[in-house]
Amino acid sequence: MSWSDAFLGTLKENDVRLVSYVPDNVLKPLLAGVNADNYFMPVSATREDEAVGMVAGAWMGGMRGCVMMQTSGFGTLPNVLASLVVPYQIPAILVISERGTMGEFNVGQALVARTMRPALDSIGIAHHTLDDDKTMPFVLDRSIKQAVATQSPVAFILSPLLTGGKTFKPS
């Protein structure tokens, strides 16, 4: 089974229906899978913080959701995480495709990537780097269950080791 099918299967097993996203190349198989399966409610958002607001509202309305984004999109989130998700105790699930490492060609991506884990740490949001397709379903499943049980958000960083990342031809 592909990493993306295993990932989506684990979301399903945990009743995560709403998937709000800002597209990304590395996320393509996840987004295609979400859009091809009637179980999911896919919503293309214009900004990542809009997607997080949506997932927060859906959670309070009784529907679990996750936000999918790329590394640079995470850079738009500290305010909504610190002023909505964390203080209101909303178990938002953040799925971030990791750019900026292991063969990055865009210096902007490489720099914003360095802010990601420190920002999550400073806001107190648990994060897991998923870099192995064998352990990924276990980490994802247990961490979603923990997020819901403890009413705490959680972030999953999809390493190029898992996804293959975005490659380029050096000139």
Partner: peptide, 13 residues
């Protein structure tokens, strides 16, 4: 984010 939050509630209910 009032509109995105409201949209999330509207989708869930």
């Amino acid at each position: 984010l009032a509109c995105p939050i409201a949209l999330g509630v509207a989708l869930a209910q």
